[in-house]
């Protein structure tokens, strides 16, 4: 077990440093890239918070959908091949739900402010 502060807390404080202290001293493209960098740290923070459990759930769904074991990467590749060939479609039991669940998780980590994601959450409710 690592000592305090946690990885998430470290990322938060670096993000605060960039936004509140570094950025105001920067100009033009460098200031813009500093903001992009702070946003990237936010992605990492959300991935640390959400990723492990959501990844396990995605892996479990993939095993159930494909009826076999394997790495999450290998099973995703196999799913792609079956969708591409038409062997699995939106009418295949569980596929639509799996794709929605996986997509919403990715957005919750990558870009929770994205308009399409927010609208999808409203439509799901």
């Amino acid at each position: 077990m690592q000592d305090q502060p946690s990885a998430i807390e470290l990322i938060e404080v670096v993000g605060e440093f960039i936004r509140n202290h570094a950025m105001p001293q920067l100009k033009g493209h460098t200031a813009f890239h500093a903001l992009v960098a702070a946003n990237a740290l936010d992605i990492v923070k959300r991935e640390l918070e959400i990723g492990p459990k959501a990844g396990d759930e995605e892996h479990r769904r993939l095993k159930a959908l494909l009826g076999k074991d394997g790495s999450i990467d290998a099973l995703n590749r196999e799913l792609c091949a079956k969708i591409e060939s038409g062997e699995m479609t939106l009418d295949t039991p569980g596929l639509r739900e799996h794709l929605w669940e996986t997509t919403l998780t990715k957005l919750a980590i990558d870009q929770p402010k994205y308009s399409g994601y927010r609208r999808a959450l409203e439509e799901k409710a």
Partner: peptide, 23 residues
């Protein structure tokens, strides 16, 4: 480039748009 790296993480935005169009 930090910008290029983070744009890589924006393909998921198009996935939610595609899901809303197709499912």
């Amino acid at each position: 480039s930090v910008e290029r790296a983070t744009i890589g993480r924006r393909s998921s935005e198009t996935e939610v748009d595609l899901m809303r169009l197709l499912a």
